[in-house]
Design a binder for these strands. Sequence first.
DNA 1: GCACAGCTTCCGTTCAGTGGAAGGTCGGGC
DNA 2: GCCCGACCTTCCACTGAACGGAAGCTGTGC
Lengths: 247, 247
Amino acid sequence: MAGNSRQAGTSVTSRALAILSAFDEQHRTLSLSDIATRADLPLATTHRLLGELHRWGALDRLPSGEYVIGRRIWDIGHLAPTETGLRQVAEPFLHDLYGATLATVHLAVREGTEVVYLDRLRGNQSVPVVSKVGGRLPLHTTGVGKVLLAHAPAEVQDAVLASLTRITPYTITQPGALRRQLRQVLDKGYATTHEEMSLGACSIAVPVHRHDEVVASLGLVVPTLKGSEQRLYGALHVAAQSIGRRL
Amino acid sequence: MAGNSRQAGTSVTSRALAILSAFDEQHRTLSLSDIATRADLPLATTHRLLGELHRWGALDRLPSGEYVIGRRIWDIGHLAPTETGLRQVAEPFLHDLYGATLATVHLAVREGTEVVYLDRLRGNQSVPVVSKVGGRLPLHTTGVGKVLLAHAPAEVQDAVLASLTRITPYTITQPGALRRQLRQVLDKGYATTHEEMSLGACSIAVPVHRHDEVVASLGLVVPTLKGSEQRLYGALHVAAQSIGRRL
DNA sequence: GCACAGCTTCCGTTCAGTGGAAGGTCGGGC
DNA sequence: GCCCGACCTTCCACTGAACGGAAGCTGTGC
């Protein structure tokens, strides 16, 4: 039989990791064939490696035969500094901010030209949001994103402003308009959005500093900022200062 | 040179996973030598595999040369059903519970003879707790643990009751006394603790049902239950019922 | 009952992986 | 400033873990 007509230069480890990479937010449950396709691996190879990942707990197999990310990955994911550093320090402040405002609370960082959500608190009465912990959204359409973009290096700003995707009719897609807003973010110390990411959702966000560096952004999402902008800014600012002092 | 005096029967994938397994709550930052020792691998092998895991993002290397779990693991950990199922459904209820009580809120499941914490909310004024998301604690000393133990199969109860470790002077270590409490948990519908896990911390917890099965426990940690036990039980019960209906 | 899609198993061949040893780097102690 | 020890990095001849096409199996839909 055939076999051993392998792709030269590909390690076993990189194949196993390619299998893990096949999963994303749009693909949380995958069949063996799906994984083989997405990881660009032969079926037999995929089958063998899936068996090993499953035995260790990196993946689980559903009764339907499909695979999902396993508890073991969730477990060791919690050992990442992302989890034990900024998030852990910020956590009680986020909870207090939620308790004080009952608005959706976000803690986010910039990664390249995107926002990554490290934490999110929301109640049943909160404005529906599309953010997810671990998920990514654009920098130009979110409050936390505008804060992070305003404090980003020029080359990041240039890259983002060269490609402003419209998400709602209110999304800012003119580079000039966004640049003016980013300057205002630096002047005022906070950013706002008005239905630019989701209809019915407005937001306000502030930077979290470690020494002089902006390491994260803290934000709130509410139905409207009318009449509450300064109050929310005050609460955010205090929380962000407290977090920054503990870092 | 030597080389190729490999341990027979060990796959590359299992070695890479052994490296990831070297990390735990007590060992979040490890040197190359530490990892080699803990994964039972030769230095050269460890070095090569660490390079691959690092390139993919499963691990990061600190300026000191030590390794930590990388963002990539954190990212895909969020795709686990643990994250997208029970936790996501429960999240707004937990936040509301926190908003209503300002107590530390726990969502936990049983895994073998331990409690695993899926979520935890706490503010700056909350009672200090030792729980961590992704972390484990004993079943017999925590409120959520007693609930999960009361609803566990008999063989799990037997195993736990055969080995009741004392953690504080108030920890229940007599099997008869704990059995009586577990019966009370079933009768009353909730469990309590009084400084059995940590001095200064009392707790109350209820089961979360999916159909007839207890799939999790929801709990609160407070300085004292005096004068508030029924109120807290009411809040927990309503939240747990709501979560159960959404599952 | 048949066709098809997806999964599982096989196994001769081969190259990715092996790890002891040597060399390099760095930090601490004197 | 030097020395030592701990730790990390690199090498490479040899070999067995890994390879994957093909065949077989299973379940589903028509």
